[in-house]
């Protein structure tokens, strides 16, 4: 087993996927904590479909995919976050409308542009080994933005997430926060789409936090544990997909490991709660 892992290690694409994936999973878990707790869980899913539409449009128009997808998704993320924060649009319904529309538009564009495009199929279902060296650099840039910001602004992030009106009253610039969250979320999703695909991306954002919440009652604890769960589940799912005889689709395997981790955490949390109620 070690041997086959070592032989994989020789392949550059394996290393790009591994490092890129760890960084994206880490950023997604951290951003996911505030998104989930502010009730924006579906935004990851919606954004990735919007990204799919943008990529399809880019490939039909024959322009650099990322150059279209990144600005479109930052704009969409900002509008969705702000819209649901102001209660102007019923969050879940708006996301569902937007994401199905963009998915359909992407499919139609792809079809008109000359049938199924391999690259677009990769975006839909994920193909972790399509991460290029450039993607890895993007992931490193993303992580070196998100991690220091998260560390420096941790207490403010907590305050805004827990109680926005109060946070604003103590002078936190909630608007700037929303913008930063939108940009980081959009970038994380653009990169994460390669790992698990458009259809499963929200898993990277949502699962680690939901799992951590079952077994810990402090914000600090949940932040750390969800980061650990996000990275751990990525690694486990990735290695499983590589080692399984005949191989497994890596994206689906990562999601499956996350789902298993969630069940374990939910079970453990329930047992602890029953014990406590018993006393």
């Amino acid at each position: 087993m070690m041997d086959s892992l070592l032989s994989y290690w020789e392949i550059p694409l394996f290393r790009y996927a591994l490092f890129g994936g760890v960084l994206v999973a880490l950023c997604a878990a951290l951003l996911g904590t505030t998104l989930v707790l502010r009730r924006f869980s579906m935004i990851g899913d919606g954004l990735s479909h919007i990204g799919f539409g943008a990529l399809a449009a880019a490939s039909v128009a024959n322009v650099l995919p990322m150059a279209v997808a990144i600005p479109v998704m930052i704009a969409a993320a900002f509008l969705l976050l702000r819209g649901s924060a102001q209660g102007k649009l019923r969050g879940d319904a708006a996301v569902a409308l937007m994401s199905t529309t963009c998915l359909a538009a992407g499919m139609i564009l792809t079809y008109l542009g000359g049938g199924t495009n391999v690259d677009l199929m990769n975006y839909l279902f994920g193909s972790i080994f399509s991460l290029s060296q450039k993607d890895l650099w993007l992931a490193i840039a993303l992580a070196s933005l998100v991690l220091p910001c998260y560390g420096l602004l941790y207490h403010r992030i907590f305050a805004v997430t827990f109680d926005e009106p109060f946070a604003r009253a103590t002078g936190v610039q909630a608007g700037a926060f929303q913008f930063a969250t939108a940009v980081f979320t959009a970038l994380t999703i653009v990169l994460g789409m390669r790992l698990t695909g458009t259809l499963l991306i929200s898993c990277l954002l949502v699962f680690p936090t939901l799992s951590a919440m079952r077994i810990n009652g402090s914000f600090f604890g949940v932040t750390l544990i969800s980061a650990a769960i996000g990275v751990g589940c990525f690694l486990l799912g990735f290695v499983l997909a590589c080692l399984y005889p005949g191989g497994l689709p890596a994206g689906a395997s990562i999601v499956a490991v996350n789902a298993a981790a969630f069940s374990i955490c939910a079970g453990a949390g329930e047992i602890v709660r029953r014990r406590r109620a018993h006393h």
Binding site: R156, F158, A159, D163, P165, T170, A212, F219, V222
Partner: peptide
């Protein structure tokens, strides 16, 4: 100025210790 907002729809499952909540009052 210290502020206690009108009963927010407190999320039943939000993970935060009482200590963390109280300290967030120091942010300003």
């Amino acid at each position: 100025i210290g502020y206690l907002p009108q009963a927010m729809a407190a999320q039943a499952d939000f993970p935060a210790l009482a200590r963390e909540v109280i300290r967030s009052g120091l942010l300003g």
